[in-house]
Amino acid sequence: MLVASASSLTPYALRQQIRQGKFKGNTSGQAAGFVQCNLAIIPADYANEFLRFCQANPKPCPLIGMAASPGDYLISDAGEDVDIRTDVPAYQLFEHGEPTAKVPDLLEVWRDDLVTFMLGCSFSFEEALLADGLEIRNITEGVNVPMYRTNLPCTPAGRFSGNMVVSMRPMPAAAAIRAIQICSRFPAVHGAPVHLGDPALIGIKDISKPDFGDAVTIRDGELPVFWACGVTPQLAIRQAKPPFCITHSPGCMLVTDIPNSKLSVL
Rank of each mutant, 00 (worst) to 15 (best):
E108Y: 05
V109E: 05
D112V: 05
V115E: 06
F94W: 05
V115Y: 08
A101M: 07
P104V: 00
G120S: 13
R111I: 03
L114T: 04
E108H: 12
S122K: 08
T116Q: 05
E108W: 01
W110K: 07
S122D: 03
V103P: 02
L93Y: 06
D105H: 13
P104I: 02
L106S: 03
A101K: 09
S122N: 14
L107M: 13
V103Y: 00
P99F: 07
E98L: 08
F117E: 11
S122H: 06
T100R: 11
D112C: 07
A101H: 04
A90I: 00
L114G: 02
T116M: 06
A90G: 10
K102G: 07
V103Q: 00
E108G: 05
M118I: 14
H96W: 12
L107Y: 01
H96E: 12
T100N: 02
V109H: 06
L106I: 02
L106D: 00
D113M: 07
R111K: 10
D113S: 09
T100M: 02
L93N: 05
V103E: 00
G120H: 11
K102L: 12
C121V: 12
V115W: 09
H96V: 09
Q92M: 12
A101D: 08
K102M: 15
L119R: 15
F117L: 14
K102F: 03
E95G: 06
E95Q: 14
K102A: 13
M118Y: 15
D112T: 13
E98W: 01
G97Q: 03
F117V: 15
L93M: 04
L119M: 15
G97P: 04
E98G: 00
L119K: 12
C121H: 13
K102P: 00
E108A: 14
P104L: 06
A101C: 00
P104M: 04
L107V: 08
W110M: 06
D112A: 11
M118S: 10
C121E: 14
F117P: 10
V115C: 14
L119W: 10
W110Q: 04
L114D: 06
H96I: 03
Q92K: 15
T116C: 14
P99G: 06
T100Q: 11
G120L: 13
L93F: 09
V109T: 02
D113A: 09
G97F: 05
G97A: 06
F94H: 02
F94D: 01
L114H: 03
T116D: 04
K102R: 14
T116P: 01
L119F: 11
F94C: 03
A90M: 13
G120M: 13
Q92P: 01
V109I: 08
V103A: 08
T116F: 10
V115A: 11
S122W: 00
V103F: 06
E95P: 01
P99H: 06
L106R: 05
